[in-house]
């Protein structure tokens, strides 16, 4: 399944290996946060790890590998990392605001419901 080039010099292989392992472990930890933690407000902190650190590690690994193989600098992976680093905060902020807004609306509805119930005469 994996088709690597025949001869990869050690100065590429070792850093790429380290970056791949670090990035995949960090990504896994970030998504474990989604499963383990009990509240939404705690879970939202998990993907931030995998997005910032994991993406940077994988992008660096890919850049290093292709630059070493092709013997010319391959820089266009930087676009992915720049794009992800710029957009992930925006989506996290919007999701957080949506969650807070929905929770506030739910508690408001609940309070209205309760007060309506308690103000009803017991005979009704």
């Amino acid at each position: 399944m994996i088709e690597l080039a025949e001869s990869i010099p050690a100065w590429i292989a070792v850093p790429v290996t380290l970056l791949l392992i670090a990035g995949s472990l960090i990504t896994l930890i970030g998504t474990l946060c989604l499963v383990r933690l009990p509240h939404f407000y705690q879970r939202i902190h998990g993907p931030a790890i995998s997005i910032t650190f994991g993406t940077t590690c994988f992008v660096l690994a890919s850049m290093l590998y292709f630059s070493g193989l092709g013997l010319r600098p391959v820089l266009h992976e930087l676009l992915i990392s720049a794009f992800v680093l710029l957009t992930a905060p925006v989506s996290a902020m919007l999701l957080m605001r949506a969650a807070v807004y929905r929770d506030l609306r739910n508690t408001h509805k609940q309070a209205q419901h309760d007060s309506a119930k308690s103000s009803q005469p017991p005979s009704a």
């Binding site: 690597l4 990869i8 292989a13 791949l20």
Partner: peptide
């Protein structure tokens, strides 16, 4: 060296 990288790729997948 190629073996090391193959193992790392399988691990990260």
């Amino acid at each position: 060296m190629s073996l090391l990288l193959t193992v790392a790729l399988y691990f990260s997948q």
